[in-house]
């Protein structure tokens, strides 16, 4: 094949695939502005009506708040536990550390449906009321392996002398950790945090099975789906997508840009 034909073919192929990848998102966002009650063609006109609708919807806004709350708190806990554990395994020698590390990352390899079912059976057996707390506990379970793995991978041997120097100059353990180790690893801690927030923000199964009265946004959207196609669902879906993208760009800007600098 001549090179020009190859290039044309490559452009065509990439174009079709990008089209396929973006088709649902474009349709979602486009028909969130539909001036009508059905988010399917033809497009009758553009309106912000449905956005007004969702921001006026108390339940939906409560769910959005819940989602943010659960995402931020569970990610913070996962980051803290992950950081401490990574510190222990990177800086000290513990017996059977391979096995312990395997235990901490194990939830990453198990379907969230199974994690949720296990927690549900234990909570119901112990008569623990389902709430945002139980959802958060579940989200820590799925995010802890991720945070641990990211932070553990960024703890190199070259930082050991830096921590030693701090200790040598009189810093106590908590001071070494707070003033030296954590600031030094901030890019990867932030990366773990934002990634974790993104996952928690989108997670459905655990949030669905482990919540009762207060629900997170994906669960609320799920219950909206029962009423079929609705431009209002498009609007809230677009907002969710936008927030995920914002989180991603924050990750890209704050974390990845920073870690590219020489240190």
């Amino acid at each position: 094949m001549p090179r020009q034909l190859q290039t044309a073919f490559a452009i065509l192929y990439a174009g079709v695939l990008y089209g396929f990848i973006f088709l649902p998102v474009v349709v979602l966002v486009l028909f969130s502005f539909q001036d009508g009650t059905l988010p399917v063609p033809p497009l009758h006109g553009l309106t912000l009506h449905w956005y007004g609708e969702i921001f006026a919807d108390r339940k939906l806004m409560a769910a959005l708040g819940n989602s943010l709350l659960v995402a931020v708190i569970s990610s913070a806990v996962a980051c803290l536990l992950g950081f401490l554990a990574a510190y222990a395994f990177a800086r000290y020698r513990l017996p059977a550390s391979n096995l312990q590390r395997a235990l901490i990352v194990a939830p990453m390899t198990v379907s969230t449906l199974i994690i949720a079912l296990g927690l549900l059976s234990v909570f119901s057996r112990l008569d623990i009321q389902l709430s945002l707390w139980t959802v958060g506990a579940g989200h820590v379970v799925i995010n802890l392996p991720l945070c641990f793995a990211i932070i553990y991978a960024s703890m190199g041997a070259h930082q050991i002398n830096i921590e030693r120097a701090a200790r040598d100059l009189g810093a106590r353990d908590w001071q070494v950790m707070l003033l030296v180790t954590a600031p030094m690893l901030m890019p990867s801690i932030l990366a773990a945090f934002f990634l974790s927030v993104t996952f928690s923000w989108d997670e459905f199964i655990i949030a669905f099975l482990l919540s009762r009265f207060d629900v997170t946004l994906p669960v609320e959207i799920w219950s909206m789906l029962r009423s079929g196609l609705d431009p209002k669902t498009n609007a809230i879906g677009s907002v969710v997508f936008l927030m995920s993208v914002v989180l991603l760009f924050m990750l890209e800007l704050i974390v990845l840009r920073k870690s590219g600098k020489p240190s």
Binding site: H158, N161, R164, A165, L169, L179, P183
Partner: peptide, 27 residues
């Protein structure tokens, strides 16, 4: 190490990368 009247100058210097020189020396 923290409670000894010794300090060490490390081979790789082990300066705190996130602190200014003033904060490094003042640590």
């Amino acid at each position: 190490a923290a409670r000894r009247p010794t300090t060490t100058m490390f081979q790789d210097y082990a300066l705190f990368p996130h602190m200014s020189l003033l904060d490094n020396v003042g640590f």
